[in-house]
Design a protein around this nucleic acid. Structure first.
Length: 475
RNA sequence: GGGCCCUUCGUCUAUCGGUUAGGACGCCUGGUUUUCAACCAGGAAAGAGGGGUUCGACUCCCCUAGGGCCUGCCA
C-alpha cells in the first residue's frame, strides 16, 4: 500500500494552509456540502490556516441570489465562519479569460471551431471507441470561416499519467489520454467551471482542496490545466458522499437534505456539526464540538467509504447537546416551536412556566419538538381533559385517597421537588400502601396523560396553586 | 462504451499480518421504578464472494459481485 499523504506534506508549512468551501448557488446548502464545509473549517483550524468561501456562480442561468442567501444562512447557522471576503467567481471571469489566453500562448490550449453537430459526432465516435474526446482543431487546423465562432479548449496531453496523491483516497492515477480536450472558454467567452476553479484556487492561495468525492476524477482534469498554465497544483482531499439510510444516493425521497430542514426539525447546530464530523472521521471520542475536534482533526484518518444518514444516531447526539445547552436559548427555541406549531402566542405566565421547566426537561428530550411535548403538561389548562388511560384511574375509591393527598400536600410549606418527594412517600406510608397505588393516579390528575418528569418535579414545576387545583378538579 | 473510487455488527466506526475483531447509536433481556425518558447490569450482532501471497490475513495482490462518481459550451 502506498503511504497516504499527510498534513505535514513537505510542500506546505503548517502556517500556510488555506482551504476553501466553494458551493454553487443553485439551491440550498445540502447536508453533504455542510460536512465538506465543516471538514475544510476543521482542517484550517487544525493547521492554523485560513478557511475561505467562494461562491461558484458562473452558471448564470441557474445561480440565484436566493440560493446564495440560503447557503450563507445555513453556514451561519452551523457557525462555520469563513476567513476573509467571499469570492464571487463570476466577477473574476476576465481573469479566467486571461489565463486561457496564457494557455493559448503556451500552445496548451487552442481555438476550437466545432459546431454543435460536429461535436456531437466526434463525441459519439470517441464514446464508441472508448476513448477521450479530441478536437480536430487541436493541431491548428484553419477555421471553417474567418468569422466562425469558437470555444477555447485545452490540448490534453497524449502521453503520461496524471497522478493525484489524494490525501484521503490515496494515489489516483489516470492516463492523460483518457482526459478530454475540455472546453475552457465557452463560445460567449465565459469561462467554464473547470478553468475557473483552477484559476481561483491558485489566486486565492488555496493549498488544500477538500471537497466531495464527485470531483475525484475532476482533480485529474484540473491538474492538467495547472500543468498547461505551468502552475503547481494544490493538494486534493476527496471526501466520500453521504448516502440515505438505504445506502442509495441522497435524494428527495430520503426527506431532509437541506440543513435548514434539520433546523426546522429541531436539531441543534452544534449537534449537527458533531454528527456530521462523525461521518467519515473519528478521533475516538464521541460527541465532540467542532472546537474540541479541530486540534485532533486529521485528513489522513478520514474514511474513504460513503456513509449513511442515521436519524437515530443523530437523535442521540442531539439529546446530548440539548442537555448541555443554555436554558434560555432552549426556552426561546421551544417557545418559537410551540407558537408556530399551534399558531398561538403564549402569555407571560405560560412563558415563565415553560422557562422554569426547561432545566429539568432538557435532559429528557431528543429534539426541540420533543422538548415541547415534554413541556406540554405545564402549559395545559384546567380543568384538564384526561386521556382514556388517565380517566380509568379515577375510580371513586382512588378519588377519596386523592382527597386525603390533597389535604396532605396542602400542609406542605416548602414546595420543592425534594420535600414533595418525601411528602409523597410519607403519605404512602400513612395510607399503608406503596407508591404504586398513588403515583399513576396522581400523575393522571396532574397531567391528564401528558408526559411529565418525576412526580416531585412535576408538582414543583406546576406550582402549589396549579398543582393543588388540578388535584382538586378530580375529587 | 470508457476511466476512476468504494466494500468490518442494522448504522457510524477501531484494527495499519498474529486481537476472544473493540467502542458508540439502535435493538433484546434483567434491575431501579410514580408514566415516558433517564440510569445501571447483561446479551444478540460484522470482515460481500472466490482465488492467491504468507508459518499466519479483516489487514497485501488478483478476479467477481454490489454500490458510487466522472465521461456537459453544469458545477
Amino acid at each position: 500500500m502506498l503511504p497516504r499523504a499527510r498534513f505535514d506534506h513537505p510542500a506546505f508549512s503548517p502556517m500556510s494552509v488555506v482551504t476553501r468551501f466553494a458551493p454553487s448557488p443553485t439551491g440550498y446548502l445540502h447536508i453533504g456540502g455542510a460536512r465538506t464545509a465543516l471538514f475544510n473549517w476543521l482542517y484550517a483550524r487544525r493547521m492554523g490556516g485560513k478557511y475561505l468561501l467562494r461562491i461558484e456562480d458562473t452558471d448564470r442561468a441557474r445561480s440565484t441570489p436566493e440560493a446564495i442567501d440560503a447557503i450563507l444562512d445555513g453556514l451561519n447557522w452551523l457557525d462555520l465562519q469563513h476567513d476573509g471576503e467571499i469570492t464571487y467567481q463570476f466577477a473574476r471571469a476576465p481573469r479566467h479569460r486571461e489565463a486561457a489566453e496564457q494557455m493559448i500562448a503556451r500552445g496548451t490550449a487552442f481555438h476550437c471551431y466545432m459546431t454543435a453537430e460536429e461535436q456531437e459526432a466526434v463525441r459519439e465516435k470517441s464514446h464508441a471507441e472508448g476513448r477521450a474526446l479530441r478536437s480536430p482543431y487541436r493541431d491548428g487546423k484553419a477555421p471553417p470561416s474567418p468569422d466562425a465562432s469558437y470555444t477555447v479548449r485545452i490540448r490534453a496531453p497524449d502521453d503520461g499519467d496524471v497522478l493525484n496523491a489524494d490525501l484521503i483516497q490515496g494515489d489516483v492515477r489516470i492516463k492523460a489520454r483518457d482526459i478530454d480536450d475540455l472546453v475552457l472558454l465557452r463560445a460567449d467567452g465565459n469561462p467554464t467551471y473547470m478553468l475557473s476553479v483552477v484559476v481561483d484556487d491558485r489566486d486565492m492561495g488555496v493549498t488544500h482542496v477538500i471537497r466531495g468525492d464527485d470531483h475525484l476524477t475532476n482533480a485529474a482534469r484540473q491538474i492538467v490545466i495547472y500543468r498547461a498554465l505551468n502552475w503547481t497544483p494544490p493538494l486534493f482531499a476527496h471526501v466520500s458522499l453521504i448516502h440515505g439510510d438505504d445506502g442509495k444516493k441522497l435524494s428527495k425521497r430520503h426527506g431532509a437534505q437541506a440543513v435548514h430542514e434539520w433546523r426546522d426539525m429541531g436539531y441543534l447546530p452544534e449537534a449537527m456539526n458533531s454528527y456530521l464530523m462523525g461521518l467519515g472521521w473519528t478521533s475516538g471520542q464521541e460527541n465532540l464540538t467542532k472546537e474540541e475536534a479541530a486540534p485532533l482533526f486529521d485528513l489522513a484518518k478520514v474514511g474513504k467509504a460513503p456513509s449513511r444518514l442515521d436519524f437515530k444516531k443523530l437523535d442521540s447526539v442531539n439529546a446530548h447537546f440539548m442537555a448541555l445547552a443554555d436554558d434560555q436559548r432552549l426556552a426561546k427555541l421551544t417557545l418559537a416551536h410551540i407558537e408556530q406549531r399551534d399558531g398561538v402566542t403564549l402569555g407571560g405566565a405560560e412563558r415563565i412556566a415553560l422557562a422554569n421547566a426547561i432545566p429539568v426537561l432538557k435532559k429528557r428530550a431528543k429534539t426541540i419538538p420533543d422538548l415541547a411535548d415534554q413541556a406540554r403538561f405545564v402549559l395545559i389548562k384546567r380543568p384538564l381533559a384526561l386521556d382514556e388511560k388517565a380517566q380509568s384511574l379515577m375510580k371513586d375509591e382512588f378519588k377519596q385517597r386523592l382527597q386525603r393527598l390533597h389535604a396532605h400536600l396542602s400542609k406542605e410549606t416548602a414546595w420543592d421537588h425534594v420535600s414533595l418527594g418525601s411528602a409523597l412517600k410519607a403519605f404512602a406510608t400513612e395510607e399503608g400502601v406503596g407508591l404504586g397505588q398513588i403515583g399513576p393516579g396522581l400523575r393522571a390528575a396532574l397531567t391528564g396523560g401528558a408526559p411529565a418528569p418525576d412526580l416531585g418535579q412535576a408538582l414543583e414545576l406546576l406550582g402549589r396553586d396549579e398543582a393543588l387545583g388540578r388535584i382538586a378538579d378530580q375529587i
